[in-house]
């Protein structure tokens, strides 16, 4: 039993963190004076692909690196910290689905050459003759493929299967949103091991949310050390200090459960779904709470678009609803048996 990352894993994290701080600093999301819609990360995919990050968990035969869920989760935490476009979920989950179904596209996806958006259901899905439902498409403007995140797990479909697409302004203004519909659409991927894909989807959402919670904590603490009122930095007041401590606790809880779940998922243990579900519950809770507290610690400036505080909160709401929000995830948790 061992839960600390190896030197090699630390290296992977350091490399991706350095890459993102150079090419995708959070400041890239500052709106210009006209406001900004969408996420400018498409140019990252071929570079991340070349470095091997998009195929970390895929077998070498499928164009991947041959590592597993542990490394994927570690890297998704960094994606969360940097608010990397949610297309990263489409790419990663889509590559796994394509590889498992022996679609030739897997290696092209992990090379960053095929765009993969995501679709999140608005309400109920019927799956009698293929999938039918109304969806929010995310980061799907130029997507060739779409990963549909249903409560039962992800499925891969061609973007052309979606009908009635219409623009839809998004609350998370850096996450490009459309509405669209599926009618009796057949997934490209087989659903042979949907629980494994479902666990991975939950785990990666949790890892991303854990990164959001840590980034919001770091931002709040930095500000509390610098901002002065009444002649002292505000972090010396217990009212602010204790808020920061609560953020640190939430981020640590999320991070530990994500680590634990990533090992359970990587080892394909019977309790993988349970621990991935638990990870999403604590990590999204942390991301939402820390996103909100970060704004409060900043005071009025936190309420403006001139700092990045709001983007962590908004992205936390986006991650919350992916594949089922906290309410639905809690219901799913109560439908599961506790691990032996």
């Amino acid at each position: 039993m061992h839960l600390l990352p190896t030197n090699e894993q630390v290296q992977i994290v350091d490399t991706v963190a350095a890459f993102l701080s150079n090419l995708a600093p959070v400041e890239r999301l500052r709106p210009d004076k006209h406001g900004q819609i969408g996420n400018p990360d498409a140019s990252l995919w071929p570079q991340l692909g070349e470095l091997g990050f998009l195929g970390l968990g895929l077998a070498e035969d499928d164009g991947g690196i041959g590592l597993g869920a542990v490394e994927e989760a570690l890297v998704f935490r960094e994606y969360g910290r940097n608010l990397v476009s949610t297309e990263i979920f489409g790419i990663t989950l889509g590559a796994h689905l394509a590889a498992e179904s022996n679609l030739n596209t897997a290696s092209e996806i992990v090379a960053g050459n095929i765009r993969v958006g995501i679709a999140n259901p608005r309400g109920a899905i019927t799956s009698e003759n293929g999938l039918s439902a109304s969806f929010h498409l995310m980061e799907a403007g130029e997507a060739e493929l779409i990963v549909v995140l249903t409560p039962d797990g992800p499925h891969l479909l061609p973007a052309s299967a979606f009908e009635d697409g219409e623009d839809c302004p998004g609350m998370d203004s850096h996450n490009l949103l459309h509405r669209a519909t599926l009618r009796n659409a057949r997934p490209l991927s087989s659903a042979a091991s949907s629980n494994a894909h479902r666990s991975r989807a939950l785990l990666l959402s949790a890892a991303y949310a854990s990164g959001l919670s840590k980034a919001a904590l770091d931002m709040a603490v930095d500000y509390a050390k610098m901002r002065e009122q009444f002649g002292k930095v505000i972090g010396s007041f217990q009212a602010v200090k204790h808020k920061c401590a609560d953020m640190a606790i939430a981020a640590e809880v999320a991070s530990c459960q994500v680590d634990f779940a990533s090992v359970v998922v990587a080892e394909n243990r019977p309790d993988a779904l349970y621990h991935a579900t638990a990870a999403k519950l604590v990590a999204v809770d942390a991301a939402l709470k820390n996103g909100a507290t970060n704004i409060q610690v900043h005071g009025a400036i936190g309420f403006t678009a001139e700092t990045d505080a709001h983007v962590y909160l908004k992205r936390a709401h986006t991650i919350d609803v992916l594949g089922g929000d906290l309410r639905k995830t809690r219901a799913s948790m109560m439908g599961q048996a506790a691990p032996a």
């Binding site: 039993m1 640590e252 809880v253 634990f260 519950l281």
Partner: peptide, 11 residues
């Protein structure tokens, strides 16, 4: 979920 996380923290 939180009890699971406490176990993860313990590990």
């Amino acid at each position: 979920a939180e009890s699971a996380a406490v176990r993860a923290m313990t590990y």
